[in-house]
Design a protein around this nucleic acid. Structure first.
Lengths: 171, 171
DNA sequence: TGCCTATTTCATTTTTTTTTGAAACAAATG
DNA sequence: CATTTGTTTCAAAAAAAAATGAAATAGGCA
């Protein structure tokens, strides 16, 4: 077992790896939280991002001081976003996780999984709004028709722009 | 006092204005919630978005069935994002609110106020990460240096892309 | 097959966020 | 300048979200 401050087992760090890890956790906790992800998800990704070796779930949990239940759920989330992947380690039947660090792909997945479904249901909602309007719009109702059209344009623009966004990410 | 289903006082809607309002509230509650805003903020904006007349706080609150405390806080948030503005109404000393519907401007404000500050502090965090590395990076430490550099590129790209995003919004 | 280890699930607990409601404050009015 | 009306503030309550931990499950290995 590594001592609390030696994070990379089998290496002899000459730099402050623990501090690096803490900053990483801090960084990703905030980033993930901006994206609406729970703290634990950011913590897990933060640990893996600066880990040379892939880590099994129980090590991630104990390093972060979170329960294996949290770790399991967090890893599930990260897996579904393709933000972590698993590696086989000979002679160990635990899954070993490592971070996917291609942010372009990560954001692309995030947008597809977490944003686009909402945009789709927004379209339905806008259609329903139009059903509330009379068929032949009087001048009086023009106001409402215009506002509905604005929403339609907004969702349309979002549907185009967001997927394109990841492509623009020239990292 | 208008009946519960007649929302626009002084008009005789021939269409289902209440349904339109409910869909609007639904729409903006979800949108705002994606942006990390509380339910009440979305509700308030949702009511104002399809209101021809500007509305005083107490009417917004009673229409939504929320407390005036919530309404006050929600309006404060919306004001700070420039998502609502106030109009003077002759002979009424209450503030009357109406929705700013230029989404381009709204997102631009949102990015500036809610996202960019985080990006700025992320830069500091990355600088601190570099301080954890030895000055002359051995081959061993290359891994960490590369990962830090990736983060730097990510924040740089974010800092460019996000503000540009609102500009791309051709609604 | 039966055991053992790793992982998932989920009811409960904890923490965090949001809302409420009443008091404080502000500001116009008579 | 006292009263009335509108708004903000903030401690407490309620609601929502996340984490825990233990039981259930899975799945490899002897």
């Amino acid at each position: 077992m590594a001592s609390p401050t030696n994070l990379q087992e089998g290496t002899t760090p000459v730099f402050d790896a623990r501090n690096l890890e803490l900053e990483s956790i801090d960084f990703f906790v905030r980033l993930m939280s901006m994206l609406g992800m729970p703290r634990s998800v950011g913590e897990i990704y933060g640990v893996l991002y600066f880990s040379k070796d892939s880590l099994p779930m129980d090590q991630i949990a104990s390093r972060l001081g979170i329960s294996i239940g949290s770790a399991s759920q967090g890893l599930r989330t990260l897996r579904s976003l393709k933000a972590v992947r698993t590696a086989y380690v000979a002679g160990d039947r635990r899954d070993h996780y490592f971070a996917e660090t291609e942010f372009r792909r990560l954001f692309s997945n995030f947008i597809k999984d977490e944003i686009m479904p909402h945009l789709d249901s927004a379209k339905d909602r806008i259609s329903r709004m139009e059903k509330s309007l009379p068929n032949h719009s009087s001048e009086e109702d023009e106001f409402y028709a215009v506002r509905i059209e604005k929403l339609r344009r907004l969702t349309k623009a979002g549907g185009r722009l967001l997927p394109a966004l990841a492509g623009l990410l020239k990292l």
